[in-house]
């Protein structure tokens, strides 16, 4: 990938000309989704007519519980199958692509319930993220001299990445022994090992203690600075305000509003959606939403 870096001002300039309405056009969309539908029995969990995600931005996807945010995430990354629709990554149709191919193409995601590989060391967790590992082929794996050079490179990269996330001193521990917040960090570090063009974070703040939150915010800003587009699902309004350039609001499976963070929360549809459903739970809950239960 190119080493282009992004400036917040630059990105916010881009958004100046973007219409503040659901499904608005962006100058350079990295993701484009059309008529995405997912039904569970009689219930329509996702019904997104049109969505574009601006390249180089930090975009937040918010909405009350059960809005279908995580389901939509799962659909875009092929972890769930849609009942209809098409979506594109870098103008390439990725509707039917397998999750692993999508990751190789540069779109990587994390999960709401962290998937740290418990009985692998922190370092091994990180090393798993690296691409082009010769030792990952069955026959090469038998002969260490074939893969040891690349393995050392991968280890170096993993250690650097872990260091950025303050996890280096834990590298020999089992990932299962980390705290919830550290697992979130590890998962993010692991995803970055792929050097993705875009990263999708599913509730990165859920279960993370307040002390760690600030550093996580810093990490996400850094990710973007290095040129990676960020899309994240979040409950934590402060975080949305702090770091996102653009906010997309979902309710009952549909996109009901889009706009910059300071304005979108004043939108009457958005206020209705929140107050009309779970405003209180939304503010107090630590991120375990029912929205994802339906996908499991």
């Amino acid at each position: 990938m190119d080493a282009k870096t992004f400036d917040i001002d630059e990105v916010q300039n881009i958004f100046k000309n973007v219409e503040q309405k659901p499904g608005s056009k962006k100058p350079d969309p990295i993701i484009l989704a059309k008529k995405v539908v997912r039904k569970f029995g009689g219930l329509t969990a996702v019904d997104v007519d049109h969505l574009e995600i601006q390249r180089g931005s930090i975009t937040a996807l918010i909405g009350p519980n059960g809005a279908g945010k995580s389901t939509f995430f799962n659909l875009l990354t092929s972890f769930d199958q849609a009942d209809g629709g098409k979506w594109f990554f870098n103008k390439e149709d990725i509707t039917k692509i397998s999750p692993n191919k999508l990751a190789q193409k540069g779109l990587v995601r994390t999960f709401q319930l962290t998937k740290a590989l418990s009985r692998l060391s922190v370092l091994d967790n990180a090393r798993l993220g690296a691409k082009n590992q010769i030792g990952e082929s069955l026959f090469a794996a038998l002969f260490k001299p074939l893969w040891i050079k690349r393995e050392l490179e991968v280890t170096k990269q993993a250690e650097d990445t872990l260091a950025q996330f303050n996890l280096l001193e834990k590298k020999s521990d089992f990932a299962g022994s980390l705290s919830g917040g550290q697992r979130k960090l590890l998962e993010m570090a692991r995803a970055l090992m792929l050097k993705p063009e875009m990263i999708m974070l599913d509730e990165p703040m859920a279960g993370v203690n307040p002390a760690l939150k600030q550093s996580l915010l810093g990490h996400i800003k850094n990710i973007r600075k290095k040129g990676t587009t960020v899309l994240f699902v979040e409950h934590d309004m402060d975080m949305v305000h702090d770091i996102s350039d653009w906010v997309i609001v979902m309710a009952q499976g549909k996109i009901i509003a889009e706009g910059p963070p300071s304005l979108v929360m004043k939108n009457s549809d958005v206020i209705d959606a929140y107050l009309g459903s779970h405003h209180k739970t939304f503010l107090t809950e630590d991120g375990k939403s029912l929205a994802t239960d339906e996908t499991q």
Binding site: T77, F79, S98, P99, N100, K101, L102, A103, Q104, V108, R109, T110, F111, K115, A116, L117, S118, R119, L120, L128, G129, K131, E136, E187, R190, A191, M193, L194
Partner: peptide, 12 residues
């Protein structure tokens, strides 16, 4: 440990 995690990292 978790096959979905591995899938999300681009491995088949």
């Amino acid at each position: 440990e978790d096959e979905e995690a591995i899938r999300s990292l681009g491995k088949s």
